[in-house]
């Protein structure tokens, strides 16, 4: 099945400079009982975003009108903890298309890329500069160029390359799906099974 193609994204960004943001914060377990993929965006960062009575917490970044955009900028080890893909569905459900950090948890990164959410890994120094810039000037546009593997803040001189596995990159740019790829290899898989029994 085709999914949205990812090439170049230009957007304002939302800074959340905390380390070790785990998937329980991204989407608390009590929202995992659903059997679909829709609707998780409303509960993204639920317990940071809303108080016990369901009222928005004024200081939290998603509740501050000056911070909007499709790029989330987070601290180290983003997405650690549970393998729940619901965390990615909550982030994409809130219309984010890329997350920038200096490190991501492995399972989260796989889940993100499988859903067309780009993880942009930069150095701690670049992350600190970018976070500082966005925090002081929320209207700043950030440009994520996947084919060129470069993230820039036009007009600021801030620019950095980022790594992407070439196979993953091609899948994202063309909007390809891993299941279709694996299904095309059924004969190889069955041959492998037969060989092992021999």
């Amino acid at each position: 099945m085709k999914r949205a193609e990812f090439t170049i994204l230009e957007s304002t960004a939302v800074p959340l400079p905390l380390a070790n943001i785990d998937t329980d914060q991204i989407i608390p377990a009590r929202f995992l009982s659903a059997t679909g993929r829709e609707g998780f965006g409303n509960n993204l960062f639920r317990d940071w975003r809303y108080d016990a009575d369901g009222n928005p917490v004024p200081g939290f970044v998603l509740n501050r009108p000056e911070f909007r955009g499709e790029i989330l900028i987070a601290g180290s080890n983003f997405g650690c903890g549970s393998s729940r893909e619901h965390a990615v569905w909550a982030i994409t459900g809130h219309d984010f298309r890329a997350v920038v950090s200096d490190s991501f948890a492995d399972i989260f990164m796989n889940n993100a890329l499988n859903n067309g959410l780009l993880t942009v890994t930069v150095t701690p120094e670049f992350l600190a500069q970018l976070t500082g810039l966005i925090t002081s000037k929320p209207e700043t546009i950030v440009r994520v160029d996947l084919p060129g593997q470069v993230i820039t803040v036009p007009g600021s001189g801030l620019q950095a390359g980022f790594p992407v596995n070439p196979f993953r990159k091609e899948c994202l740019i063309k909007g390809l799906d891993n299941i279709d790829y694996l299904l095309s290899m059924k004969e190889d898989i069955m041959a492998f099974e037969k060989n092992r029994q021999a």
Partner: peptide, 16 residues
């Protein structure tokens, strides 16, 4: 693994 990967394994018994 995540749910997309669960789907891959259900479909092909393999993962990338």
């Amino acid at each position: 693994i995540g749910t997309s990967e669960v789907e891959m394994v259900l479909a092909t018994q393999c993962l990338l």
